[in-house]
């Protein structure tokens, strides 16, 4: 016990950087620890991406459908992006809308969990995660039935003449609603994490300094939770932009297809579709990594991880 007390008095309280002090310099051991997982990621993440990239530049033999030769055919990108520009735009638009709505729903929830829930905090946390133990395909199809024309929501909306063409499913509204629903926890959890770290006394101080509720929120609470909001935005936007399940299950054949649907169908249903699908995949990835890079430069990666 005396040894513990000695240590306690000798070293200061643990600071965020305290773990750095215990970090060791190793010669072989760290590489040994790194090797199996690192190799796995290199073989099954990096190499496939490189392969996908070469496919995106391949050209097809005109007389042999389904065969390609190695090439640097940048035209693949140009034709894929011009042909499927609407789908790309839709992906960004729907994902952006879903991210916005998810933020609007997630912030009050995370705020209530962090500051109002008291001893119900643990229960609310379980409630946020629990729905995700039901298969997400099952839940998305459940939404399809709930929003269907004969379902209660479409009937009420139709009775009030809110829907221009009488449907919710098969429209972009259903797709955005589905995306919002499916990725909501990815918005809630980081916001909650950053609000929980915030000192409630700082927010009280806003009130003590005669700021009203909204001003306190705008100038104190929101800036303190900004890292969580931005991490949540990325965590919602990235999967939403690449998603095709919601558009497939809740949307219609033509007007709601996203870039994910195009990639999927170019791979599986369109002969000679591989280079187009690969080019679209790469453009999507470049776009998203660009966003992540901007975020990481501004805020560092620690809040994201």
């Amino acid at each position: 016990m005396s040894a513990l007390a000695h240590v306690g008095s000798a070293s200061a309280a643990p600071t965020p950087g305290a773990a750095d002090e215990t970090a060791k310099r190793g010669r072989f051991l760290p590489y040994l620890l790194l090797l199996p997982g690192g190799l796995w990621l290199i073989i099954f993440f990096v190499v496939p991406l490189v392969q996908l990239f070469t496919v995106s530049l391949q050209s097809r033999f005109p007389e042999y459908p389904g065969y390609y030769y190695r090439d640097v055919n940048v035209k693949n990108y140009w034709s894929a992006l011009t042909e499927f520009a609407p789908h790309f735009g839709r992906s960004l638009l729907f994902a952006g809308l879903a991210t916005f709505f998810a933020f609007c729903l997630a912030y009050p929830l995370a705020y209530a969990m962090a500051f109002k829930a008291g001893r119900w905090r643990g229960l609310m946390m379980i409630c946020v995660i629990a729905p995700f133990f039901t298969s997400f395909i099952l839940r998305t199809i459940a939404w399809r039935q709930i929003l269907a024309d004969e379902g209660p929501i479409a009937r009420i909306a139709n009775a009030l003449h809110l829907l221009p063409n009488g449907h919710i499913t098969e429209t972009w509204i259903a797709v955005v609603a589905g995306l919002t629903y499916n990725f909501l926890p990815f918005m809630v959890l980081p916001i909650y994490a950053s609000l929980e770290r915030a000192d409630p006394r700082v927010i009280e101080a806003g009130g003590d300094l005669y700021a009203n509720g909204f001003t306190t929120f705008r100038t104190v609470t929101l800036p303190m939770s900004m890292p969580g909001v931005l991490a949540g935005t990325l965590l919602t936007f990235i999967p939403a932009a690449g998603d095709y399940v919601n558009a497939e299950l809740l949307g219609s054949d033509r007007s709601t297809k996203m870039v994910g649907n195009v990639i999927e169908s170019q791979f599986f249903k369109v002969p000679d579709g591989y280079p187009t699908a690969a080019a679209l995949s790469f453009t999507l990835m470049a776009l998203i990594l660009g966003m992540v890079f901007l975020y990481a430069r501004k805020f560092g990666t620690e809040d994201l991880l």
Binding site: L41, L52, P239, A241, A278
Partner: peptide, 19 residues
């Protein structure tokens, strides 16, 4: 190397693995 797979859309992971 650990971070980038999480920032990659699932459809890109699936497509590259299939390839």
């Amino acid at each position: 190397l650990v971070f980038v797979p999480m920032a990659t859309p699932e459809i890109v992971l699936g497509a590259s693995l299939l390839t």
